[in-house]
Amino acid sequence: MQFDWWTLALQAVNFLVLVWLLSRFLYRPVRQVIEKRQALSQEAAEAAQRQADEAEAARRRYEDAQKALEAERRDLVEAVHKDMQAERRKLLEAAQAEAGQIRAEAREATEQARRAALSTLKSEIADLATGIAAGVLQDSAAARLGPGTMAAVRAYFEALPESELEALRRDATGASGEVAVVTATELSETDRKTWQNGLHGWLQSEARVTFVVAPEILGGVELRFPHAILSFTWARQIEEATARLVGDAHER
């Protein structure tokens, strides 16, 4: 095997020359192109990033504007709500005032009606009381001392059933029986005689008759038997009138 040093040297030189040639005409241009392409790619990426940033900024602006619009809408709604509340309050106050006025008017009308009714009632009561009083006075005035009262007593006795008349007769003619004639004022002897004779006749017996003065009966007469009282007094009549006024008439 032979080894040629010249060939070794030449091949080494050739390779180094090739290294220089390829470095000059291959690697450098390719590297420049690659770096240029990378730079362009980087620029494109940066441009894309810028556009993305701008888009993001635009999105943020849009969101801010949307928030502002939302806040404005909320404020408007709130203002409208406040206006509505104020209007509602105003209407309510007006309605309340109107209702108060209507109520006052109704109260006034009711009061007037009440007054009118009360006046009418008072008038009717006055008429009724006047009529009652007139009747009482009319009845009693005639019978206070005179034949009116006596006539009323006689009519009473005449209208009595026989059994009751007999009961009164026995009561008046018993052992301790008597009939007390009670008047508001002192009777004259003549009146006493008249009442005594009247009683003897109405009872058809000679019962003992006594005379008692009792001013509280006001007028009229009251016949007191041992076990019964026949009252024809004014006080009794007023009492009956009062009972009639309250709708509760008593039996005499």
Binding site: M1, F3, D4, W5, T7, L8, A9, Q11, A12, N14, F15, L16
Partner: peptide, 15 residues
């Protein structure tokens, strides 16, 4: 091929 002779691989290996 130049690599089939020892001088060329030797030159390359030396480099």
């Amino acid at each position: 091929p130049p690599t089939g002779h020892i001088e060329t691989p030797a030159a390359l290996a030396t480099i």
